[in-house]
Nucleic acid binder design. Structure first.
Lengths: 202, 202
DNA sequence: GTCTACTCCAACAACAACGTTGTTGTTGGT
DNA sequence: ACCAACAACAACGTTGTTGTTGGAGTAGAC
């Protein structure tokens, strides 16, 4: 077994994922991908086509993973807060994917690939919230989609804007206790938003 | 008046803002900036130094603007929620800024230009929150910096991740009533986080 | 053994972007 | 009127990246 085609492809894929996540589509060079994969650059073109095709291949494959990673089912009031915590955890554990999605979003010019599938994913979550609101488990002041979006914002912005998190907290994101506090803040905030409240008398 | 130096600088600045926001530091070319500003490329280098210096200048200036446009002083419990609302408004009016911050976050390699100045800006806001917490105006469950960060996240993520907002709400961001609802959601959420609560008996 | 198909690599041309330099023309002061 | 300083621009050399090509070596079929 002198040749290991599948292995080579896989190494290229992994290298591409890392490089794209680190530097984005424009900041990444095919040469660096090849170097990292310990492969000749020509292999990249031969196996994956040009750079943008490789980027598409990577992002599609990774999005499939992200979709199934953090499911949401609400049977208790605290489930939404836990969802926020798990989303936070997921972003911490897979910073590459989070960054990839962000890059895609920024490069976005109107429509995103697989928009239909992903829309269903989100509306599914929104529907879960809506059902829980009708069941009285979740505060129904806000539109379910808006509430869902705010939950995602709370959980995601730490990874999306790490420089702001750093400047505000003064602490490095690597610090374990800081991370724990951030997570606790997210969960607490989500719970505040989710817990049903009596209507204000204003 | 044959020459309009300030005007030229300003045109370059505006062009750079638009290009950087659209394509990010790596995706932007100095030549396109010059073309858009209807200026020779050399002027860019003469006035602003190299590309990264220009990017720094743009992001710093834009952050100064939002800091002055949306100040934060807390004398009532609802002030924090109003701050969130005004931040949301500002981001809507200047969507380039949110994208700029995200680009910077993605390109972030440990330290950001003007990190010291900007850190002071943020800690100033965090201190305002801390003081208000001690005065009993703001709920003190969360660390002031973390609370401040969550407020910013709530207000900014709509502009930062428009594709997610679009997929979740199903509505276009141009829709006036949708925008109003989003703003209301942000303000409501901020108020939920800010309002002092008795400690849970758990 | 030989043939075909495939992997792998070094080298190449084409191009795009960077940052600089040299020149022309304009301004405002003396 | 003259001059120094400066705005404006075209053109340049350099560097880095892209995508391709031709050749050398290897595996398995017949």
């Amino acid at each position: 077994m002198a040749w290991d085609v599948e292995g080579t492809k896989h190494r290229i894929y992994q290298a591409a994922l890392a490089e794209f996540a680190a530097h984005g589509p424009d900041g990444t060079t095919v040469d660096r991908i090849a170097k990292r994969a310990q492969v000749n650059r020509e292999r990249v073109y031969n196996y994956f086509g040009d750079k943008s095709a490789l980027f598409s291949a990577v992002i599609r494959s990774e999005l499939d993973k992200i979709a199934q990673a953090v499911p949401l089912t609400i049977t208790r009031t605290t489930d939404l807060a836990e969802f926020a915590g798990r989303t936070f955890d997921y972003q911490r554990a897979h910073p590459d994917l989070a960054r990839l999605v962000l890059w895609e979003g920024l490069s976005d010019t109107g429509t995103v690939p697989d928009e239909l599938t992903r829309t269903e994913l989100y509306t599914g979550k929104a529907n879960a919230v809506a059902a829980a609101q009708q069941a009285g488990l979740i505060d129904d002041t806000l539109d379910p989609a808006h509430l869902m979006f705010l939950i995602i914002a709370l959980s995601s912005y730490w990874s999306a804007a790490p420089q702001i998190a750093r400047m505000l907290s003064g602490t490095d994101a690597q610090d374990a206790t800081e991370t724990a506090q951030r997570r606790a803040a997210v969960v607490h905030a989500a719970r505040q938003l989710a817990t049903p409240r009596p209507k204000p008398t204003t």
